[in-house]
Computed example of a mutant assay.
Amino acid sequence: MDAQNDVDATADPVDLAASPRGDGPVAPDGPPGAAWDGLLRGLEEKVAGLVENGLTRLGNELDTANRLEAEAAFAAGHPDFAELKHSGRLTAIRRDNPLLDEVGAYFAAMLEREREAVAARLEEASLAAEKRTLESLRSRRLAATLGQGQGAAPDRGGDPELSEPGRFGGMNTVLARRLAARRAAAGN
C-alpha cells in the first residue's frame, strides 16, 4: 500500500490544511490526497459561511422591504397613521408599552381617541337627560298647581280656561284665579 494513503489511528489527528501560524488553509505540497481533502473541506466551510451570511443579509433586506411596503399600504388605508407617526405619538405609546409595534401603537391611539369621543357623547347624553328631567319636574309642578295631582300631565283639552287661556286674560291670570280659589276653599 501507498505510504500516503496509510492512516495511523493511534496518532493524534493533524489538520494538514491549517497553517501552523493559524491564518487559514495552506496549499499542501505533494500529490492529491488527505491534505487536499482537508483544504477543500476548509474552503467549502468558508464558502458555505459566506453564502449563509449573504443569504441572511439578503433575507433581512427583503424583510425590511416587505415591512416598509406593508407599512405604506397600511398608511394608505389609515390616513391618521402617518400623522401620528410624524407627531411622535406612536413612539410615545411604544415607549410606554414596548410590546407594541407601530401598528399596535396606532390602534392603541385610535382606542384612546374613541374613548375620548365616547366620554364626550356620554357627557352630552348626561346633559340631555338632566334637561329632560328638569323639564319633567317643571311639568309635574305645573300639573300639581293646576290641580290635576302629582305627576299628571295637564289636560288642556278638558278645561276651556287652560285650553284657551288667551280668552280668559292669559295663563298667569287663569293660574292666579285658580290659586285664589284654592286658598279661599282652604280657608286661608
Rank of each mutant, 00 (worst) to 15 (best):
Q4I: 02
N5A: 09
D6Q: 06
A9P: 15
D12R: 10
D12M: 06
V14M: 04
V14D: 00
V14L: 06
L16Y: 13
A17C: 10
A17Q: 05
A18W: 09
A18M: 10
G22H: 09
P25M: 01
V26N: 00
D29V: 15
P31G: 09
G33L: 11
A34L: 08
W36I: 03
G38E: 03
G38R: 07
L39H: 12
L39S: 07
R41L: 11
G42L: 11
L43T: 11
E45A: 15
K46M: 14
G49L: 12
L50T: 02
V51N: 07
V51A: 08
E52T: 14
L55V: 12
L55E: 05
T56P: 00
T56A: 06
N60L: 08
L62Q: 10
D63M: 04
D63Q: 05
D63P: 06
T64K: 12
A65M: 10
A65P: 11
N66M: 14
R67S: 09
E69T: 15
E71L: 09
E71K: 06
A73D: 14
F74D: 07
F74A: 11
F74C: 12
A75W: 07
A75V: 12
A75G: 11
A75H: 14
A76D: 14
H78S: 04
P79A: 01
A82L: 07
L84G: 07
L84A: 08
K85N: 02
H86T: 15
R89A: 10
R89V: 09
I93K: 02
I93Y: 07
I93H: 04
R94D: 02
N97Q: 10
N97P: 13
L99K: 09
L99Q: 08
D101C: 03
E102M: 03
G104Y: 12
A105D: 09
Y106A: 01
Y106P: 03
Y106G: 00
F107I: 05
A108E: 06
A108F: 09
R115S: 15
A117D: 04
V118G: 00
A120Q: 08
R121C: 01
L122W: 08
L122R: 07
L122G: 03
L122A: 08
E123V: 13
E124D: 05
A125Q: 04
S126F: 11
A128V: 12
A129Q: 15
E130C: 06
R132A: 01
R132L: 01
L134Q: 13
L134F: 15
E135A: 06
E135P: 05
R138T: 14
S139M: 15
S139A: 14
R141L: 06
A144D: 04
A144I: 05
T145I: 14
G147H: 07
Q150G: 04
A152T: 06
P154I: 11
R156E: 02
R156D: 03
G158L: 03
D159A: 02
E161P: 13
L162D: 00
E164L: 06
E164C: 03
F168G: 00
G169D: 01
G170S: 04
T173R: 08
V174N: 05
L175W: 12
A176G: 01
A176M: 03
R177I: 03
L179G: 01
A180C: 00
A180H: 06
R182L: 02
A184W: 04
A185L: 02
G187I: 11
N188A: 12
